[in-house]
Design a binder for these strands. Structure first.
Lengths: 366, 366
DNA sequence: TTGTACGCGTTATCAC
DNA sequence: GTGATAACGCGTACAA
């Protein structure tokens, strides 16, 4: 560990002072060109590498950000982490990853550790409202950017998707297809994502005059989907469409329905949410609300960078515009619907066009 | 950033020296119990947090490991990263994540950065043999643990799956079902995983007397699967079974075949590799070779920990035993096979039993 | 048992 | 343009 060559060695070997060596390499200022060349050459020859720990010690900044996610193995968070890491790298930042295991106490501990590591900022996909105390505390030491999920009490930057808009896109699409009865299968109200998707579903389906069945509520995982399929089948007649809160739920629903001999979209339409890589590959390919994670990551990192430059900045919120991707799981009119059901849709409302490119719309405020 | 309370503050407030405060908190030795209580209390009240950068500076160890993967968004690597992170956490280590974007130059840079960050060890899922120079260089500064993929020239610890065994399990399973003709769709020989799977396929299928079609070679991704399906269809008659090198390839194959009106397992059997979370959820559920990532991660971390304790240790290799998971994608005998084809299988060979729990078998040497 | 003082490797400040 | 030196916050050898 200590066998590495340090600046001191380079300086001695190059016959200059340690200060000159530092300046020559940092490309800072006031060093004669030939000294620079010489020192650089010596450094290269000796295989010198800065000790960024020492540099951080001196500079008071680590050029490292932390990121806490509920569970990295979830493809959605994996993609998100990948996007954030890539974006950070453009700014010459490193990423310290922490998996909270979907546990609030773990989350609190991991946040604390990140502060101890002196990260310059933390991206957090928080668990639920119980995360508030820990986040609030940590926020006093280091800038926080909430990603995907936001906690009401927390006055920190936030970047996520416009959940309401996504749900609205799905419901309008279904209504246009002639669906009359719909059911929601999603997560509970513990975090902002589940909450806003559920509320949007209630509001928009009412606006569209759809017949709403009792929702099946659980988590954003496959099991919730399979369980929901069981519940729906027990109730007897299936609704025209099942609107789910995540692609994983949709996979669970479809797989379980198929086990029971029901086909999608033949017997019932199903939609997902998130638009992960598997959604287009599934059978049937899934109609879903795609989240432009690249945009979300870019904006989240931008928020942090701007805050580092200007710490006094007021907290900002951004909700990125989602994109509806129409695929086979909602192909064709629902089986039992009257052909004129589509008349219930207000034609004046622009809705969304499947092929339209997603542009990250910015919403400021708060 | 500098507004945080430091040890000095705690010491002053507690009315003791900085050394005593340090000892009291580190729980080291030789401190009166009541001093410990007092200092601890003051620290808590002031909200003191150690500066682990400073501690690392002093201790010469960061308690941080780096991990370089080709692409974190790939569910397989995501799960692997998650498992490693969790395992590291048990040892009070943090994880610095680096995505090499499947690019050798990026990989080299990221490895270097990790060294500069003074990580105590690096887990690397290397790109291919071109990664050798960078890894070799970096290895002189910090312990390396190769995970999943191994580079021949590199004399570092390695933990991965027993690729040959996995392929053998699949082929015996297919042979037992009566498959006579098989084709491989997998990645090229650039990295050890693709290489050993392909070689094992050749060897074992010959041993089993299977009729082998010209393989379709690409990468471990979905596109390779779709493309392969096209190739197979163009060739005319499908083989009895398609053996793929990854679940993603299998998804691609199945989806494309279905587009063309062919069914799995009705028209052809298909197997995957990796056993990721989606494999059981797909339609049809995928027969696949499951990699116990928990075991792999645990052993990889163990390797590092042991090496940190005892740097002189000779490099070790471990190949973890995979587990065949039989599902519907290979349900039933292949359509065109003679019923007695299964006789080609040597019944004395233990093969693998679907329900058998995977135990991480250790192989040492090198 | 506790306190003093030094060093970890780097960079910035101040003299020359 | 270059060199000497202080400082970042902590842990510990040594002294008391």
């Amino acid at each position: 560990m200590g066998q590495d060559v340090k600046l001191d060695d380079v300086a001695r070997e190059a016959g200059v002072s340690i200060a000159t060596a530092s300046r020559a390499l940092s490309g800072a200022s006031r060093v004669s060109p030939e000294t620079v060349r010489h020192v650089t050459e010596v450094a290269r020859r000796l295989g010198y590498r800065v000790d960024k720990i020492a540099r951080a010690m001196r500079a008071g900044t680590t050029r490292t950000a932390g990121m806490v996610v509920p569970i990295i193995a979830n493809p959605f968070f994996a993609e998100l982490v990948g996007a954030v890491e890539g974006e950070l790298h453009k700014h010459d930042f490193e990423l310290l990853l922490a998996d909270s295991q979907a546990d609030v106490e773990q989350e609190a501990k991991r946040l604390n550790t990140l502060v101890e590591r002196r990260v310059d900022g933390i991206f957090v996909v928080s668990q639920d409202s119980r995360s508030a105390t820990a986040v609030e505390l940590v926020q006093r030491s280091v800038p926080i950017v909430q990603v995907d999920r936001s906690i009401a009490r927390i006055d920190a930057d936030f970047v996520g998707i416009d959940n309401e808009m996504g749900v609205a896109m799905v419901l309008r699409h279904l209504a246009e297809l002639g669906a009359r009865s719909v059911v929601l299968v999603s997560a509970d109200d513990a975090n902002s994502v589940g909450r806003s998707r559920r509320r949007a579903f209630q509001r928009v389906s009412a606006e569209l005059g759809l017949s709403v069945r009792e929702p099946v509520i659980g988590a954003f995982d496959v099991d919730t989907g399979s369980r929901a399929a069981g519940v729906l089948l027990e109730r007897g007649e299936l609704p025209d469409a099942v609107v789910t809160g995540s692609d994983l739920i949709a996979f669970g629903v479809i797989a379980a329905l198929r086990e029971a001999g029901r086909e999608v979209p033949g017997d019932v339409l199903v939609t997902g949410y998130d638009g992960n890589a598997m959604s287009g590959l599934y059978s049937p390919p899934l109609t879903t609300v795609h989240q432009p994670l690249g945009v979300i990551a870019r904006e989240a990192v931008m928020f942090l960078m701007e805050r580092l430059k200007e710490p006094g900045l007021p907290p900002r919120r951004m909700e990125v515009r989602p994109e509806l991707i129409v695929r086979r799981s909602t192909d064709g009119a629902p089986p039992r619907s009257a052909p004129d059901a589509a008349a219930a849709v207000d034609p004046a409302r622009p809705g969304c066009h499947p092929g339209a490119p997603a542009s990250g719309g910015r919403t400021r405020g708060r």
